[in-house]
Design a protein around this nucleic acid. Structure first.
Length: 542
RNA sequence: GCCCACAUAGCUCAGCAGGAUAGAGCGACUGCCUCCUAAGCAGUAGGCCAGAGGUUCGAAUCCUCUUGUGGGCACCA
Protein backbone atom coordinates (compact mmCIF):
# COMPACT_ATOMS: atom_id res chain seq x y z
CA UNK A 1 0.00 0.00 0.00
CA UNK A 2 1.18 3.48 -0.72
CA UNK A 3 2.45 5.71 2.01
CA UNK A 4 -0.31 8.29 1.70
CA UNK A 5 -3.00 5.62 1.77
CA UNK A 6 -1.58 4.09 4.92
CA UNK A 7 -1.46 7.41 6.72
CA UNK A 8 -4.86 8.37 5.40
CA UNK A 9 -6.35 5.24 6.88
CA UNK A 10 -4.60 5.65 10.22
CA UNK A 11 -5.47 9.32 10.41
CA UNK A 12 -9.12 8.59 9.72
CA UNK A 13 -9.15 5.99 12.47
CA UNK A 14 -7.48 8.37 14.90
CA UNK A 15 -9.99 11.11 14.09
CA UNK A 16 -12.88 8.73 14.67
CA UNK A 17 -11.44 7.59 17.99
CA UNK A 18 -11.14 11.22 18.99
CA UNK A 19 -14.84 11.57 18.33
CA UNK A 20 -14.86 13.29 14.96
CA UNK A 21 -16.50 12.25 11.72
CA UNK A 22 -14.01 12.95 8.96
CA UNK A 23 -15.36 13.01 5.40
CA UNK A 24 -12.41 13.27 3.11
CA UNK A 25 -8.99 13.00 4.61
CA UNK A 26 -6.49 14.63 2.33
CA UNK A 27 -2.79 14.20 2.79
CA UNK A 28 -0.37 16.34 0.85
CA UNK A 29 3.38 16.55 0.57
CA UNK A 30 4.82 19.31 2.69
CA UNK A 31 6.60 22.06 0.86
CA UNK A 32 8.60 23.19 3.83
CA UNK A 33 10.85 20.91 5.82
CA UNK A 34 9.68 22.29 9.12
CA UNK A 35 6.25 20.87 8.34
CA UNK A 36 7.62 17.37 8.07
CA UNK A 37 7.28 15.24 4.95
CA UNK A 38 3.52 14.99 4.71
CA UNK A 39 0.70 17.08 6.08
CA UNK A 40 -3.01 17.00 6.51
CA UNK A 41 -5.36 19.93 6.98
CA UNK A 42 -8.00 17.64 8.46
CA UNK A 43 -8.39 19.64 11.72
CA UNK A 44 -9.09 22.81 9.76
CA UNK A 45 -11.89 21.15 7.86
CA UNK A 46 -13.38 19.66 11.04
CA UNK A 47 -13.24 22.83 13.09
CA UNK A 48 -16.52 24.35 12.07
CA UNK A 49 -18.75 21.33 12.61
CA UNK A 50 -16.95 20.39 15.83
CA UNK A 51 -17.03 23.96 17.15
CA UNK A 52 -13.52 23.60 18.46
CA UNK A 53 -10.28 25.29 17.56
CA UNK A 54 -8.33 23.53 14.83
CA UNK A 55 -5.25 23.29 17.00
CA UNK A 56 -7.20 21.57 19.78
CA UNK A 57 -8.60 19.13 17.23
CA UNK A 58 -5.12 18.47 15.89
CA UNK A 59 -3.87 17.70 19.38
CA UNK A 60 -6.82 15.41 20.05
CA UNK A 61 -6.33 13.45 16.82
CA UNK A 62 -2.60 13.17 17.35
CA UNK A 63 -3.31 11.84 20.86
CA UNK A 64 -5.25 8.97 19.34
CA UNK A 65 -2.89 8.33 16.43
CA UNK A 66 -1.15 4.98 16.58
CA UNK A 67 2.34 5.45 15.30
CA UNK A 68 3.69 2.73 13.07
CA UNK A 69 7.31 3.07 14.02
CA UNK A 70 8.52 1.48 10.81
CA UNK A 71 7.20 4.51 8.96
CA UNK A 72 6.49 7.51 11.12
CA UNK A 73 9.29 9.23 13.01
CA UNK A 74 7.14 12.02 14.40
CA UNK A 75 3.66 13.48 14.24
CA UNK A 76 3.05 17.04 15.36
CA UNK A 77 0.62 19.91 14.91
CA UNK A 78 1.37 23.33 13.51
CA UNK A 79 -0.75 26.48 13.32
CA UNK A 80 -3.33 27.22 12.17
CA UNK A 81 -4.27 23.53 12.45
CA UNK A 82 -2.21 21.19 10.35
CA UNK A 83 -1.07 17.74 11.34
CA UNK A 84 2.43 17.02 10.10
CA UNK A 85 4.19 13.71 9.65
CA UNK A 86 7.90 13.21 9.68
CA UNK A 87 8.70 9.98 7.87
CA UNK A 88 11.63 7.83 8.89
CA UNK A 89 14.66 7.81 6.64
CA UNK A 90 14.58 4.03 6.83
CA UNK A 91 11.21 4.05 5.09
CA UNK A 92 12.56 6.00 2.13
CA UNK A 93 15.69 3.86 2.09
CA UNK A 94 13.59 0.75 1.87
CA UNK A 95 12.19 2.02 -1.42
CA UNK A 96 15.43 1.10 -3.15
CA UNK A 97 14.84 -2.60 -2.66
CA UNK A 98 11.17 -2.24 -3.39
CA UNK A 99 11.80 -0.56 -6.73
CA UNK A 100 14.54 -2.95 -7.75
CA UNK A 101 12.40 -5.90 -6.82
CA UNK A 102 9.46 -4.59 -8.84
CA UNK A 103 11.67 -3.69 -11.80
CA UNK A 104 9.74 -2.84 -14.93
CA UNK A 105 6.47 -3.41 -13.09
CA UNK A 106 7.18 -0.58 -10.66
CA UNK A 107 4.47 2.02 -11.24
CA UNK A 108 2.10 -0.44 -12.83
CA UNK A 109 -1.21 -1.41 -11.32
CA UNK A 110 -3.95 -3.88 -12.00
CA UNK A 111 -6.88 -1.47 -11.95
CA UNK A 112 -7.47 -2.29 -15.60
CA UNK A 113 -6.78 -6.00 -15.34
CA UNK A 114 -9.17 -8.10 -17.41
CA UNK A 115 -10.63 -4.92 -18.83
CA UNK A 116 -10.53 -3.66 -22.36
CA UNK A 117 -10.15 -0.14 -23.63
CA UNK A 118 -10.48 1.39 -27.06
CA UNK A 119 -8.57 4.55 -27.86
CA UNK A 120 -9.55 6.21 -31.09
CA UNK A 121 -7.15 8.84 -32.30
CA UNK A 122 -5.60 10.56 -35.32
CA UNK A 123 -8.56 9.50 -37.51
CA UNK A 124 -7.47 11.95 -40.20
CA UNK A 125 -9.01 11.34 -43.59
CA UNK A 126 -6.39 10.54 -46.19
CA UNK A 127 -6.47 13.88 -47.97
CA UNK A 128 -2.87 14.80 -47.30
CA UNK A 129 0.21 14.05 -45.24
CA UNK A 130 0.16 13.92 -41.47
CA UNK A 131 0.84 17.44 -40.24
CA UNK A 132 1.92 18.96 -36.98
CA UNK A 133 -1.73 19.63 -36.31
CA UNK A 134 -2.38 15.88 -36.30
CA UNK A 135 0.79 15.32 -34.34
CA UNK A 136 -0.63 16.47 -31.06
CA UNK A 137 -3.58 14.16 -31.47
CA UNK A 138 -1.38 11.22 -32.40
CA UNK A 139 1.00 11.62 -29.48
CA UNK A 140 -1.70 12.26 -26.91
CA UNK A 141 -3.66 9.23 -28.10
CA UNK A 142 -0.73 6.87 -28.11
CA UNK A 143 0.46 8.02 -24.70
CA UNK A 144 -2.99 7.71 -23.18
CA UNK A 145 -3.09 4.18 -24.57
CA UNK A 146 0.30 3.51 -22.97
CA UNK A 147 -0.94 4.78 -19.63
CA UNK A 148 -3.93 2.46 -19.77
CA UNK A 149 -1.75 -0.47 -20.69
CA UNK A 150 0.45 0.38 -17.76
CA UNK A 151 -2.58 -0.21 -15.57
CA UNK A 152 -3.39 -3.54 -17.07
CA UNK A 153 -5.93 -2.62 -19.71
CA UNK A 154 -5.99 -4.53 -22.94
CA UNK A 155 -5.97 -1.56 -25.32
CA UNK A 156 -7.11 -1.37 -28.93
CA UNK A 157 -5.64 1.57 -30.81
CA UNK A 158 -8.09 2.49 -33.49
CA UNK A 159 -8.07 4.80 -36.49
CA UNK A 160 -11.40 5.78 -37.95
CA UNK A 161 -11.60 7.24 -41.43
CA UNK A 162 -13.86 8.03 -44.28
CA UNK A 163 -12.94 7.53 -47.91
CA UNK A 164 -16.27 8.60 -49.32
CA UNK A 165 -17.59 12.10 -48.70
CA UNK A 166 -16.88 15.49 -50.11
CA UNK A 167 -13.29 15.82 -48.96
CA UNK A 168 -12.23 12.68 -50.72
CA UNK A 169 -14.14 13.53 -53.86
CA UNK A 170 -12.30 16.82 -54.02
CA UNK A 171 -9.06 14.98 -53.53
CA UNK A 172 -9.77 12.78 -56.54
CA UNK A 173 -10.75 15.76 -58.63
CA UNK A 174 -7.59 17.58 -57.63
CA UNK A 175 -5.43 14.66 -58.74
CA UNK A 176 -7.40 14.38 -61.94
CA UNK A 177 -6.85 18.05 -62.72
CA UNK A 178 -3.10 17.71 -62.17
CA UNK A 179 -3.02 14.63 -64.36
CA UNK A 180 -4.54 16.39 -67.31
CA UNK A 181 -2.35 19.36 -66.62
CA UNK A 182 0.65 17.08 -67.07
CA UNK A 183 -0.81 16.01 -70.38
CA UNK A 184 -0.84 19.64 -71.38
CA UNK A 185 -4.58 19.94 -71.21
CA UNK A 186 -5.61 23.04 -69.40
CA UNK A 187 -8.51 22.04 -67.22
CA UNK A 188 -10.03 23.99 -64.44
CA UNK A 189 -8.68 23.16 -61.00
CA UNK A 190 -11.57 22.41 -58.64
CA UNK A 191 -12.63 25.16 -56.35
CA UNK A 192 -11.51 24.27 -52.81
CA UNK A 193 -9.29 21.59 -54.32
CA UNK A 194 -6.10 20.33 -52.68
CA UNK A 195 -3.18 22.40 -53.79
CA UNK A 196 -0.23 20.54 -52.28
CA UNK A 197 2.70 19.29 -54.31
CA UNK A 198 1.96 15.74 -53.21
CA UNK A 199 -1.08 15.90 -55.48
CA UNK A 200 1.16 16.56 -58.46
CA UNK A 201 3.40 13.69 -57.46
CA UNK A 202 0.48 11.33 -57.31
CA UNK A 203 -0.67 12.54 -60.72
CA UNK A 204 2.82 11.95 -62.08
CA UNK A 205 2.85 8.42 -60.66
CA UNK A 206 -0.45 7.69 -62.28
CA UNK A 207 0.90 8.94 -65.57
CA UNK A 208 4.00 6.76 -65.20
CA UNK A 209 2.03 3.65 -64.34
CA UNK A 210 -1.02 3.97 -66.50
CA UNK A 211 0.02 6.22 -69.34
CA UNK A 212 -2.08 8.87 -70.94
CA UNK A 213 -5.16 6.78 -71.51
CA UNK A 214 -7.20 7.74 -68.45
CA UNK A 215 -10.41 9.58 -69.04
CA UNK A 216 -12.06 12.18 -66.85
CA UNK A 217 -13.84 10.91 -63.74
CA UNK A 218 -11.92 7.65 -63.73
CA UNK A 219 -12.25 6.30 -60.16
CA UNK A 220 -8.58 5.45 -60.25
CA UNK A 221 -7.64 9.06 -59.48
CA UNK A 222 -9.22 8.95 -56.09
CA UNK A 223 -8.27 5.36 -55.36
CA UNK A 224 -4.64 5.93 -56.15
CA UNK A 225 -4.57 9.15 -54.15
CA UNK A 226 -6.12 7.50 -51.14
CA UNK A 227 -3.81 4.52 -51.27
CA UNK A 228 -0.70 6.61 -51.65
CA UNK A 229 -1.61 9.06 -48.95
CA UNK A 230 -2.71 6.41 -46.49
CA UNK A 231 0.55 4.55 -46.89
CA UNK A 232 2.32 7.81 -46.28
CA UNK A 233 0.34 8.54 -43.14
CA UNK A 234 1.00 5.10 -41.74
CA UNK A 235 4.68 5.53 -42.36
CA UNK A 236 4.68 8.88 -40.59
CA UNK A 237 2.97 7.29 -37.62
CA UNK A 238 5.50 4.50 -37.50
CA UNK A 239 8.23 7.13 -37.51
CA UNK A 240 6.65 8.43 -34.32
CA UNK A 241 6.53 4.95 -32.85
CA UNK A 242 2.78 4.63 -33.28
CA UNK A 243 1.07 1.46 -34.44
CA UNK A 244 -2.64 0.94 -34.81
CA UNK A 245 -4.47 -2.27 -34.09
CA UNK A 246 -7.47 -1.46 -36.18
CA UNK A 247 -8.54 0.82 -39.00
CA UNK A 248 -12.26 1.30 -39.30
CA UNK A 249 -13.83 2.70 -42.42
CA UNK A 250 -16.97 4.71 -42.06
CA UNK A 251 -18.28 2.97 -45.18
CA UNK A 252 -18.70 -0.22 -43.16
CA UNK A 253 -21.70 1.19 -41.37
CA UNK A 254 -23.52 1.99 -44.56
CA UNK A 255 -22.78 -1.38 -46.03
CA UNK A 256 -23.77 -3.47 -43.04
CA UNK A 257 -27.03 -1.61 -42.54
CA UNK A 258 -26.17 -0.20 -39.11
CA UNK A 259 -26.96 3.31 -40.22
CA UNK A 260 -30.39 2.48 -41.62
CA UNK A 261 -31.14 0.53 -38.48
CA UNK A 262 -30.37 3.29 -36.06
CA UNK A 263 -32.16 5.88 -38.18
CA UNK A 264 -35.23 3.68 -38.09
CA UNK A 265 -34.97 3.34 -34.35
CA UNK A 266 -34.78 7.08 -33.88
CA UNK A 267 -37.65 7.52 -36.26
CA UNK A 268 -39.71 5.14 -34.14
CA UNK A 269 -38.99 7.36 -31.19
CA UNK A 270 -40.15 10.37 -33.18
CA UNK A 271 -36.71 11.95 -32.98
CA UNK A 272 -36.34 12.30 -36.73
CA UNK A 273 -38.30 14.43 -39.12
CA UNK A 274 -38.16 15.85 -42.63
CA UNK A 275 -37.94 19.54 -43.38
CA UNK A 276 -36.77 21.55 -46.41
CA UNK A 277 -35.82 18.36 -48.18
CA UNK A 278 -33.46 17.35 -45.40
CA UNK A 279 -33.71 14.90 -42.52
CA UNK A 280 -33.30 16.32 -39.04
CA UNK A 281 -32.44 14.93 -35.65
CA UNK A 282 -34.76 16.44 -33.08
CA UNK A 283 -32.09 17.42 -30.53
CA UNK A 284 -34.38 20.11 -29.15
CA UNK A 285 -36.33 17.26 -27.56
CA UNK A 286 -33.15 16.23 -25.80
CA UNK A 287 -32.28 19.54 -24.26
CA UNK A 288 -30.48 21.28 -27.12
CA UNK A 289 -31.33 24.68 -28.48
CA UNK A 290 -31.44 23.67 -32.12
CA UNK A 291 -32.04 20.58 -34.21
CA UNK A 292 -29.28 19.07 -36.29
CA UNK A 293 -29.27 17.98 -39.90
CA UNK A 294 -28.79 14.25 -40.31
CA UNK A 295 -29.24 13.89 -44.05
CA UNK A 296 -28.66 16.79 -46.35
CA UNK A 297 -31.07 17.65 -49.12
CA UNK A 298 -28.46 16.28 -51.50
CA UNK A 299 -29.06 12.88 -49.92
CA UNK A 300 -25.67 12.80 -48.25
CA UNK A 301 -25.68 12.11 -44.52
CA UNK A 302 -23.75 14.47 -42.28
CA UNK A 303 -20.81 13.15 -40.29
CA UNK A 304 -23.01 12.72 -37.20
CA UNK A 305 -24.79 9.78 -38.71
CA UNK A 306 -21.89 7.43 -39.35
CA UNK A 307 -20.16 8.70 -36.21
CA UNK A 308 -23.12 7.63 -34.15
CA UNK A 309 -23.26 4.23 -35.81
CA UNK A 310 -19.54 3.89 -35.26
CA UNK A 311 -19.77 4.67 -31.57
CA UNK A 312 -22.64 2.30 -31.17
CA UNK A 313 -20.46 -0.32 -32.76
CA UNK A 314 -17.68 0.41 -30.30
CA UNK A 315 -20.11 0.14 -27.42
CA UNK A 316 -21.40 -3.16 -28.77
CA UNK A 317 -17.91 -4.50 -29.03
CA UNK A 318 -18.01 -4.44 -25.23
CA UNK A 319 -15.10 -2.23 -24.27
CA UNK A 320 -14.95 -1.26 -20.63
CA UNK A 321 -13.55 2.10 -21.59
CA UNK A 322 -13.90 4.05 -24.83
CA UNK A 323 -11.73 7.07 -25.42
CA UNK A 324 -11.87 9.59 -28.25
CA UNK A 325 -9.14 12.11 -28.84
CA UNK A 326 -10.59 15.17 -30.53
CA UNK A 327 -9.36 18.60 -31.46
CA UNK A 328 -11.16 21.62 -30.08
CA UNK A 329 -13.06 21.98 -33.34
CA UNK A 330 -15.11 18.94 -32.36
CA UNK A 331 -16.11 20.39 -29.03
CA UNK A 332 -19.55 21.27 -30.23
CA UNK A 333 -20.27 18.12 -32.18
CA UNK A 334 -19.58 15.08 -30.03
CA UNK A 335 -22.43 15.90 -27.63
CA UNK A 336 -24.83 15.23 -30.52
CA UNK A 337 -23.35 11.79 -30.96
CA UNK A 338 -23.62 11.02 -27.26
CA UNK A 339 -27.18 12.30 -27.26
CA UNK A 340 -28.14 10.01 -30.11
CA UNK A 341 -26.54 7.03 -28.37
CA UNK A 342 -28.44 7.74 -25.20
CA UNK A 343 -31.63 8.15 -27.19
CA UNK A 344 -30.97 4.67 -28.52
CA UNK A 345 -30.92 3.43 -24.97
CA UNK A 346 -27.18 2.94 -24.69
CA UNK A 347 -25.03 3.72 -21.72
CA UNK A 348 -22.32 6.25 -22.44
CA UNK A 349 -20.71 6.58 -19.00
CA UNK A 350 -17.66 4.70 -20.11
CA UNK A 351 -16.99 6.99 -23.06
CA UNK A 352 -14.44 9.67 -22.36
CA UNK A 353 -13.77 12.45 -24.82
CA UNK A 354 -10.38 14.09 -24.53
CA UNK A 355 -10.32 17.46 -26.21
CA UNK A 356 -7.06 19.13 -26.98
CA UNK A 357 -6.53 22.71 -28.07
CA UNK A 358 -4.99 23.53 -31.37
CA UNK A 359 -1.33 24.02 -31.99
CA UNK A 360 -0.29 27.44 -33.18
CA UNK A 361 2.63 27.12 -35.50
CA UNK A 362 5.15 29.91 -35.36
CA UNK A 363 7.90 30.49 -37.86
CA UNK A 364 10.21 33.47 -37.74
CA UNK A 365 8.08 34.99 -35.05
CA UNK A 366 4.89 34.82 -37.07
CA UNK A 367 1.84 32.65 -36.77
CA UNK A 368 1.21 30.32 -39.65
CA UNK A 369 -2.35 29.45 -40.48
CA UNK A 370 -2.35 25.77 -41.32
CA UNK A 371 -4.56 24.31 -44.00
CA UNK A 372 -4.23 20.94 -45.68
CA UNK A 373 -6.27 22.15 -48.59
CA UNK A 374 -4.12 25.23 -49.18
CA UNK A 375 -1.00 23.14 -48.66
CA UNK A 376 0.04 25.41 -45.88
CA UNK A 377 1.39 22.97 -43.33
CA UNK A 378 4.48 21.39 -41.90
CA UNK A 379 4.43 17.63 -42.08
CA UNK A 380 5.26 15.36 -39.19
CA UNK A 381 7.91 13.72 -41.33
CA UNK A 382 9.72 17.00 -41.85
CA UNK A 383 9.67 17.66 -38.14
CA UNK A 384 10.70 14.16 -37.11
CA UNK A 385 13.52 14.18 -39.63
CA UNK A 386 14.79 17.40 -38.20
CA UNK A 387 14.57 16.85 -34.45
CA UNK A 388 13.78 13.18 -33.95
CA UNK A 389 10.74 11.34 -32.67
CA UNK A 390 11.70 11.67 -28.99
CA UNK A 391 11.72 15.45 -29.12
CA UNK A 392 8.49 15.59 -31.08
CA UNK A 393 6.70 13.25 -28.70
CA UNK A 394 7.94 15.06 -25.67
CA UNK A 395 7.03 18.43 -27.06
CA UNK A 396 3.44 17.40 -27.63
CA UNK A 397 3.07 15.69 -24.29
CA UNK A 398 4.83 18.07 -21.94
CA UNK A 399 1.95 20.55 -21.93
CA UNK A 400 -1.59 20.09 -20.81
CA UNK A 401 -3.94 19.39 -23.67
CA UNK A 402 -6.09 22.29 -22.60
CA UNK A 403 -3.35 24.77 -23.32
CA UNK A 404 -3.17 26.35 -26.73
CA UNK A 405 0.40 25.55 -27.35
CA UNK A 406 2.70 27.53 -29.50
CA UNK A 407 5.02 25.48 -31.60
CA UNK A 408 7.94 27.65 -32.49
CA UNK A 409 9.59 25.87 -35.37
CA UNK A 410 12.82 27.81 -35.13
CA UNK A 411 13.07 27.05 -31.44
CA UNK A 412 12.26 23.39 -31.89
CA UNK A 413 14.81 22.92 -34.63
CA UNK A 414 17.67 25.36 -33.97
CA UNK A 415 17.70 24.83 -30.24
CA UNK A 416 16.75 21.21 -30.15
CA UNK A 417 19.83 20.49 -28.05
CA UNK A 418 18.32 22.48 -25.24
CA UNK A 419 15.07 20.61 -25.39
CA UNK A 420 13.97 19.44 -21.96
CA UNK A 421 13.70 15.87 -23.17
CA UNK A 422 17.50 15.69 -23.28
CA UNK A 423 17.71 16.72 -19.66
CA UNK A 424 15.65 13.72 -18.79
CA UNK A 425 17.41 11.29 -21.06
CA UNK A 426 20.75 12.61 -19.87
CA UNK A 427 19.95 11.53 -16.34
CA UNK A 428 19.43 8.00 -17.63
CA UNK A 429 22.59 8.07 -19.74
CA UNK A 430 24.60 9.31 -16.77
CA UNK A 431 23.38 6.44 -14.62
CA UNK A 432 24.26 3.92 -17.29
CA UNK A 433 27.67 5.43 -17.62
CA UNK A 434 28.38 5.29 -13.91
CA UNK A 435 27.37 1.64 -13.75
CA UNK A 436 29.48 0.84 -16.76
CA UNK A 437 32.41 2.79 -15.40
CA UNK A 438 32.02 1.01 -12.08
CA UNK A 439 32.08 -2.35 -13.76
CA UNK A 440 35.34 -1.46 -15.47
CA UNK A 441 36.73 -0.79 -11.99
CA UNK A 442 35.49 -4.14 -10.78
CA UNK A 443 32.34 -2.94 -9.02
CA UNK A 444 29.55 -5.45 -9.12
CA UNK A 445 26.28 -3.58 -9.83
CA UNK A 446 24.28 -6.43 -8.30
CA UNK A 447 26.28 -6.52 -5.08
CA UNK A 448 24.63 -6.73 -1.69
CA UNK A 449 23.84 -3.26 -0.41
CA UNK A 450 22.98 -1.49 2.81
CA UNK A 451 20.64 1.41 2.14
CA UNK A 452 20.99 2.81 5.64
CA UNK A 453 24.14 4.44 4.31
CA UNK A 454 22.04 6.69 2.08
CA UNK A 455 21.71 9.58 4.46
CA UNK A 456 22.72 12.59 2.39
CA UNK A 457 19.80 14.96 1.89
CA UNK A 458 20.11 14.76 -1.90
CA UNK A 459 19.89 10.96 -1.63
CA UNK A 460 16.78 11.06 0.50
CA UNK A 461 15.17 13.68 -1.72
CA UNK A 462 15.87 11.52 -4.74
CA UNK A 463 14.28 8.53 -3.04
CA UNK A 464 11.23 10.45 -1.96
CA UNK A 465 10.65 11.50 -5.55
CA UNK A 466 11.32 8.08 -7.02
CA UNK A 467 8.87 6.55 -4.57
CA UNK A 468 6.08 8.79 -5.83
CA UNK A 469 6.03 7.24 -9.27
CA UNK A 470 3.16 4.78 -8.65
CA UNK A 471 1.05 7.59 -7.24
CA UNK A 472 1.78 9.72 -10.32
CA UNK A 473 0.82 6.87 -12.60
CA UNK A 474 -2.41 6.23 -10.72
CA UNK A 475 -3.27 9.85 -11.07
CA UNK A 476 -2.47 9.82 -14.79
CA UNK A 477 -4.72 6.82 -15.15
CA UNK A 478 -7.61 8.68 -13.58
CA UNK A 479 -7.15 12.04 -15.24
CA UNK A 480 -5.72 10.73 -18.53
CA UNK A 481 -3.40 13.71 -18.58
CA UNK A 482 -0.07 12.55 -19.86
CA UNK A 483 1.73 15.79 -19.08
CA UNK A 484 1.75 14.94 -15.37
CA UNK A 485 4.05 12.02 -16.15
CA UNK A 486 6.38 14.23 -18.16
CA UNK A 487 6.49 16.81 -15.40
CA UNK A 488 7.20 14.18 -12.81
CA UNK A 489 10.08 12.70 -14.77
CA UNK A 490 11.52 16.16 -15.21
CA UNK A 491 11.39 16.57 -11.46
CA UNK A 492 12.99 13.18 -10.88
CA UNK A 493 15.80 14.05 -13.30
CA UNK A 494 16.39 17.28 -11.39
CA UNK A 495 16.74 15.38 -8.14
CA UNK A 496 19.12 12.97 -9.76
CA UNK A 497 21.34 15.65 -11.29
CA UNK A 498 21.49 17.35 -7.92
CA UNK A 499 22.48 14.10 -6.26
CA UNK A 500 25.09 13.55 -8.95
CA UNK A 501 26.60 16.94 -8.25
CA UNK A 502 26.72 16.34 -4.51
CA UNK A 503 27.57 12.66 -4.14
CA UNK A 504 30.10 10.49 -5.89
CA UNK A 505 28.80 7.04 -6.57
CA UNK A 506 32.10 5.27 -7.13
CA UNK A 507 34.13 5.80 -4.00
CA UNK A 508 36.89 4.08 -2.03
CA UNK A 509 34.26 2.91 0.43
CA UNK A 510 32.93 -0.30 -1.08
CA UNK A 511 29.83 -0.51 1.07
CA UNK A 512 28.85 3.07 0.29
CA UNK A 513 29.51 2.48 -3.40
CA UNK A 514 27.21 -0.56 -3.41
CA UNK A 515 24.46 1.38 -1.66
CA UNK A 516 24.68 4.23 -4.16
CA UNK A 517 24.82 1.88 -7.12
CA UNK A 518 21.61 0.34 -5.83
CA UNK A 519 20.13 3.82 -5.47
CA UNK A 520 20.90 4.84 -9.03
CA UNK A 521 19.72 1.47 -10.26
CA UNK A 522 16.35 2.18 -8.72
CA UNK A 523 16.24 5.65 -10.28
CA UNK A 524 17.15 4.13 -13.62
CA UNK A 525 14.19 1.78 -13.33
CA UNK A 526 11.78 4.61 -12.66
CA UNK A 527 13.16 6.69 -15.53
CA UNK A 528 12.89 3.77 -17.91
CA UNK A 529 9.37 2.90 -16.86
CA UNK A 530 8.29 6.50 -17.18
CA UNK A 531 9.94 7.09 -20.53
CA UNK A 532 8.42 3.92 -21.84
CA UNK A 533 4.97 5.21 -21.03
CA UNK A 534 5.78 8.42 -22.90
CA UNK A 535 7.10 6.41 -25.83
CA UNK A 536 10.50 8.05 -25.54
CA UNK A 537 13.80 6.21 -25.70
CA UNK A 538 16.10 5.87 -22.72
CA UNK A 539 19.57 6.14 -24.28
CA UNK A 540 22.57 4.59 -22.53
CA UNK A 541 24.94 7.13 -24.02
CA UNK A 542 24.48 10.69 -25.18
C1' G B 1 -24.98 37.43 -30.49
C1' C B 2 -24.61 32.23 -28.30
C1' C B 3 -21.45 27.86 -26.62
C1' C B 4 -16.48 25.59 -25.08
C1' A B 5 -11.46 26.31 -23.65
C1' C B 6 -7.54 29.48 -22.10
C1' A B 7 -5.19 34.14 -19.46
C1' U B 8 0.63 32.67 -14.01
C1' A B 9 8.31 35.81 -14.64
C1' G B 10 10.75 39.31 -20.76
C1' C B 11 9.29 34.34 -23.79
C1' U B 12 7.23 29.09 -23.61
C1' C B 13 4.60 26.82 -19.86
C1' A B 14 3.96 23.75 -14.94
C1' G B 15 1.12 24.09 -10.49
C1' C B 16 -5.57 23.68 -10.09
C1' A B 17 -10.38 16.62 -5.84
C1' G B 18 -8.81 24.84 -2.01
C1' G B 19 -3.77 24.66 2.17
C1' A B 20 1.40 27.22 5.02
C1' U B 21 6.81 31.52 1.54
C1' A B 22 3.62 30.61 -6.44
C1' G B 23 7.70 26.88 -9.71
C1' A B 24 10.64 25.07 -14.18
C1' G B 25 12.92 25.78 -18.92
C1' C B 26 14.56 29.50 -22.33
C1' G B 27 16.63 34.53 -22.35
C1' A B 28 19.96 38.10 -18.90
C1' C B 29 23.83 38.28 -15.10
C1' U B 30 27.70 35.39 -11.21
C1' G B 31 30.30 31.26 -9.83
C1' C B 32 31.65 25.61 -10.40
C1' C B 33 35.17 20.44 -14.67
C1' U B 34 43.50 17.72 -12.07
C1' C B 35 37.36 14.19 -9.73
C1' C B 36 31.62 8.63 -12.41
C1' U B 37 29.47 12.68 -19.35
C1' A B 38 29.31 20.70 -17.90
C1' A B 39 23.25 18.05 -22.63
C1' G B 40 25.10 19.20 -15.55
C1' C B 41 25.21 21.93 -10.59
C1' A B 42 24.97 26.40 -7.34
C1' G B 43 23.39 31.49 -7.19
C1' U B 44 21.30 36.76 -8.74
C1' A B 45 17.54 39.45 -11.20
C1' G B 46 12.59 38.97 -12.91
C1' G B 47 5.20 38.17 -10.32
C1' C B 48 -1.00 42.76 -8.05
C1' C B 49 -1.27 34.33 -10.76
C1' A B 50 -5.69 39.43 -16.77
C1' G B 51 -9.34 42.87 -13.81
C1' A B 52 -13.52 43.17 -10.27
C1' G B 53 -16.68 40.91 -6.92
C1' G B 54 -18.20 36.32 -4.11
C1' U B 55 -17.79 31.43 -1.23
C1' U B 56 -14.13 29.89 2.81
C1' C B 57 -10.50 29.70 8.73
C1' G B 58 -7.61 29.89 3.85
C1' A B 59 -8.36 31.04 -3.37
C1' A B 60 -3.55 31.02 -8.81
C1' U B 61 -7.00 26.75 -7.80
C1' C B 62 -14.24 26.94 -6.74
C1' C B 63 -18.64 30.58 -8.40
C1' U B 64 -20.33 35.27 -11.05
C1' C B 65 -19.25 39.44 -14.10
C1' U B 66 -15.74 42.27 -17.29
C1' U B 67 -11.72 42.36 -20.76
C1' G B 68 -8.48 39.73 -24.14
C1' U B 69 -6.94 35.15 -27.10
C1' G B 70 -8.09 30.39 -29.67
C1' G B 71 -11.98 27.19 -31.37
C1' G B 72 -16.97 26.25 -32.53
C1' C B 73 -22.24 28.02 -33.57
C1' A B 74 -23.09 25.25 -41.78
C1' C B 75 -27.45 20.81 -45.53
C1' C B 76 -17.98 20.85 -44.08
C1' A B 77 -15.62 16.79 -41.07
Amino acid sequence: MKLKEILQKQLTEAAEKAGFTPHSVVITSSKDEKHGDLSSSLPLSLAKAAKKSPMAIAEAIIGKFEIDDRIVADIFPSPPGFINFKIKDSYFQSLVSEIIKAGNTFGQSDTGKNKTANVEFVSANPTGPLTIGHGRNAVIGDTVANILENHGYNVTREYYFNDAGRQMRLLGQSVEARYFELLGKEIEFPEDGYEGNYIKEIAQNILDEHGKSLTPSDPLFKEKAEKTIFADIEKSLVNLGIHFDQFTNEKTFYENGDIDRFLDELKAKNLIYEKDGATWFRTTNLGKDQDRVYIKSTGEPTYRVPDTAYHRDKINRGFDLIIDIFGADHADTYPDVLLALEALGLKTDHIRILLYQFVTLIRKGEKIKMSTRKANFVTMDELVDEVGADVVRYFFIMRGMNSHLNFDLDLATDQSEKNPVFYLQYAHARICNIIKHGESLGVNPQAHFDTSLLTNSSELELLKTAGKFPEIMDNANETLEPQSVANYLQNLATKFHKFYAECRVLTDDNTLTSARIALINSVKIVLENGLKVLGISAPERM
